[in-house]
């Protein structure tokens, strides 16, 4: 790669610069690793040891916290729900965003400017800031406590960004490819299905990973919309473990570990895609 060539010729690095670099990096390293390591070993500590000394390593290592957390926290079905919400949302968002991006970039229309900025406004509104309106509307429509009541907002709140990502990619598909297909007699829907979707695989992965992550960590909407434990997700289940009149650090920590593992796997497997998603985020302007 090109960037290896110039590195060999390194400029003089002033000492204060190096020191500041290491100090800031140390802050992040300590803040990221220390709580995670602490969380890790504390989750294997019996409750009475945690209460007696928060910092110490476990004397009697135990997996009881995990067993309890899994059973009492019902993480089995919470995981299933989280997966349902994330997967369905991701599939719908990918399909709708690409089709919209295709229409916006490749079908000439005087409405495009209007619609594109209309959808762009969605980048400014989040679930948290409109939870009160959403809740009231969902209540009115009888959508609280239903899968649909979660899925529809999830799709809507993820679509703005996905359309933006998709448009930046679809725009770069050469017009000639599309024109050629049109001349062969294909209509736009066929072009979308046969040309745009297959060609967009890289951005589809990015949109999918990004949407999946956003859904996985979302908390406020499900918390507000679900009184029925059967549709709750991992994040909500986790927050509810902080019981009102009873407590237990041990299984709270074990549950935190259980709930965080999927994110760690997602990160390790799709680091590049996540980074691309986030880095394109700020370019929306």
């Amino acid at each position: 790669m090109a960037d290896h060539e110039w590195k060999s010729g390194r400029a003089r690095v002033p000492l204060p610069f190096t020191i500041v670099s290491y100090v800031v990096l140390a802050f992040f390293t300590v803040f990221t690793l220390f709580p995670l390591i602490w969380l890790g070993y504390t989750s294997f500590k019996p409750e009475q040891e945690i209460v007696a000394n928060m910092v110490a390593l476990p004397v009697n290592w135990t997996v009881r916290n995990y067993v309890q957390a899994w059973q009492l926290g019902e993480f089995g079905h919470l995981f299933v729900n989280s997966l349902i919400f994330c997967v369905v949302t991701t599939v719908v968002v990918v399909l709708l965003s690409l089709s919209a991006a295709f229409a916006f970039t490749k079908i000439p229309s005087r409405w495009t400017r209007l619609w594109f900025s209309f959808i762009g406004l969605g980048l400014l509104v989040t679930i948290s800031s409109s939870i009160v309106p959403l809740f009231i509307a969902a209540n009115y429509l009888g959508l609280t406590n239903t899968y649909l009541g979660i899925l529809i907002p999830y799709v809507a709140f993820n679509i703005s960004f996905a359309v933006y990502l998709a448009a930046s990619f679809v725009r770069s598909i050469p017009n000639e490819v599309i024109e050629a297909a049109k001349i062969d007699g294909a209509n736009y829907l066929q072009v979308y299905r046969l040309i745009v979707l297959p060609m967009s695989r890289p951005i589809i992965t990015t949109i999918a990973i990004f949407t999946f992550h956003a859904c996985w960590v979302e908390y406020v909407l499900v918390y507000m919309m679900s009184s029925d434990s059967s549709i709750r997700t991992v994040q909500v289940g986790l927050s509810l473990l902080k019981g009102q009149l009873s407590f237990n650090f041990g299984f709270l920590f074990a549950a935190v570990v259980i709930a965080s593992l999927p994110l760690l796997i997602l990160y390790l497997a799709f680091r590049k895609h996540l980074q691309t998603g986030f880095s394109l985020g700020a370019l929306k302007g």
Binding site: F135, N139, T144, S227, S229, L240, Q244
Partner: peptide, 21 residues
């Protein structure tokens, strides 16, 4: 039975009352 933590319980019951559920 369904189980909710204390705060969530009050939020939800209120919502369910409005929606007749």
């Amino acid at each position: 039975f369904d189980y909710l933590d204390h705060d969530a319980y009050h939020n939800k019951m209120q919502a369910l009352a409005i929606s007749g559920n």
